[in-house]
Simulated scan of single mutants.
Amino acid sequence: MAMEAGPRDREQGRRDVADSASRLSPDGPDEQDVIADEVEVELRPQRRLRIWQLAPIVMLAAVGSLMFAFPLAFGTGDGGAVVAMLGLLISCCAAGWGVMAARRVGHTWPGLPARGSGERPDWRVIALYVGVGAALVALAVWRVARLR
């Protein structure tokens, strides 16, 4: 013999639903209802420069700077200016390679917005970078020209 639910059973079911609804906040369950062992983990690895990317850049920069500095410091013969300019060229190539590698992993120059952020760079920061770069190149060329 099957029993049918009467009016009292229906009201009890409605009260249970109302009690459980009062525990819910507008944006989901209360903090007590959430499992405390959940931890968010970034699935993608962090993008950073690896040793195999840095080693050739550092070696080229060291060789180039030694080639640039040695003739300037010790003033070796007629070929010193050529060796110094070649060292400057190698150092600049290593610096450019390092900047491109750093940009590829997401680093930016200080004062400039992150790549893809949609912000425009400040013209004063760009002017500062261009001015410092031009001054360094002018000093290097002037020093090499004085070797002769």
Rank of each mutant, 00 (worst) to 15 (best):
D27W: 04
A134P: 05
G111I: 08
R15I: 03
A18T: 01
W97Q: 11
A134T: 14
S65P: 00
A114N: 15
P110R: 06
L43R: 06
P45Q: 05
A134E: 07
I51P: 00
Y129S: 04
D30L: 03
D33F: 08
V83H: 02
G87W: 01
V105N: 03
G13I: 07
A102R: 05
M59P: 00
S22G: 06
P121E: 10
R48A: 12
D30V: 05
E119T: 01
E11L: 10
E38W: 10
G133V: 05
V41Y: 08
D19E: 14
A94L: 02
V34E: 14
R50M: 07
L60W: 07
S65D: 04
T108Y: 02
G64V: 02
A61S: 11
A127Y: 06
S117D: 08
G87R: 00
R104Q: 15
I126V: 15
D30G: 14
A61I: 01
T76M: 13
M85V: 05
G131S: 07
A18S: 06
A114F: 09
E31M: 07
C92Q: 08
R124D: 14
L43G: 14
V17Y: 05
V39P: 05
G118E: 13
D122A: 08
L24E: 10
D27K: 11
P121G: 08
F70H: 10
F70N: 12
L72W: 03
R104E: 15
S25Y: 07
R48Q: 11
V63S: 07
I126S: 06
A62S: 15
L88G: 13
I51T: 10
V83K: 02
E11D: 09
A94Q: 00
L43E: 13
L43M: 11
M67C: 10
L60Y: 10
P121V: 13
I90M: 15
R103S: 15
S91W: 09
I35L: 09
S25Q: 12
A101R: 06
V41A: 12
A55W: 04
D78H: 10
D30P: 03
T108F: 09
P121W: 12
S117I: 07
G87Q: 01
D37G: 06
A62W: 03
P121I: 14
S91L: 14
